[in-house]
Amino acid sequence: MEKKSYSDNNFENLTNDLHNLPKIQTPPDFEFKLMSRIQNGNFNSKFKEEKEFTFGRFFKPAFSLVVLMLILIVIMNINDNQSVSPLIDTPTKLNKINSGSLNEVKKIDQNKTADKITKNDKSQKSSFALKSPQNMQFSGKTIDIDKAMKQNQNVNQQNEFGVLAGSEQFSGFGVRVPAQKGEMDSMRSKIDSIRKASKK
């Protein structure tokens, strides 16, 4: 038997009455009903949890829908106003070169430089005008073969190394060392001697 605490003594009458309350018993058919439910596999509960009627039930889906809409709007706006990133996009000039319109690019460059020159020196303007694209075009029926050949050579070189916007030629990030004529000759003579030896 547990010891009664102070509070137990305080409520002695009440606790006695509570203890002496009549014992409620299950109805006589309780076990029969239970066992027949088990035998029939009827386990459907009468006390299924009812979903609470709270504001959260309505506001949560609405709130998530609004958030979703906002996210969609933000994404769509980003796609519309996407600014040109110089790091990601290929320069327009390079695009034009790749598509074969090198002359147009050259025109633009030369026009720009020509404008600068006109501002600085009028005498240089006249000399530059000879090199200007209009003059380089094949005017009339005569063709300056040397110039045309040179131009083609330049185009080939530029196609080979590529051209960066704002610079003349781009030949990679390494330092380009021009080949020495003497070295080239010695190499050629070596190759020739090897060929001769192999023929023999």
Partner: peptide, 24 residues
């Protein structure tokens, strides 16, 4: 069954519901 019935009835105050709860 009977101790639980008594406990549930004192808590809920309805015999039929208490019987159902004990069965559950």
């Amino acid at each position: 069954k009977d101790p639980l019935m008594n406990f549930v009835y004192r808590f809920v105050g309805d015999k039929d519901i208490s019987s159902d709860i004990v069965q559950e």
